[in-house]
C-alpha cells in the first residue's frame, strides 16, 4: 500500500489556503457592497419580536 500521508497533508494545507482566500475575497466584497453595516444584523432584532403583537404588522416587509 502506498502512503499518501504527505500529499494529503499538503492537500489539506492547500485547501485551507483556498478557503482563507475565498473568505477574504468575500469579506472584502461584502464590505464594498455595504453589507458590513447595521442593516445586515436586522434579523437578530426582528426574531425577538415575532411574539409581540403590537409591532407585528409593522415589521413585515414586502416580498
Amino acid at each position: 500500500m502506498r502512503d499518501y500521508s504527505y500529499p494529503s497533508v499538503y492537500f489539506a494545507y492547500f485547501y485551507f489556503v483556498l478557503l482563507l482566500v475565498g473568505a477574504i475575497f468575500f469579506f472584502l466584497r461584502s464590505v464594498r457592497h455595504g453589507y458590513w453595516g447595521k442593516d445586515s444584523e436586522e434579523a437578530k432584532y426582528r426574531m425577538l419580536k415575532d411574539d409581540d403583537e403590537d409591532s407585528y404588522e409593522d415589521l413585515r416587509r414586502p416580498l
Binding site: Y4, S8, F16
Partner: peptide
C-alpha cells in the same frame, strides 16, 4: 484504513 485518510481526518477534526 489508509494512513493518509486517517491524517486527513485528523487535520479536519482539529479544524
Amino acid at each position: 484504513i489508509s494512513q493518509w485518510l486517517q491524517t486527513i481526518a485528523i487535520v479536519f477534526s482539529v479544524m
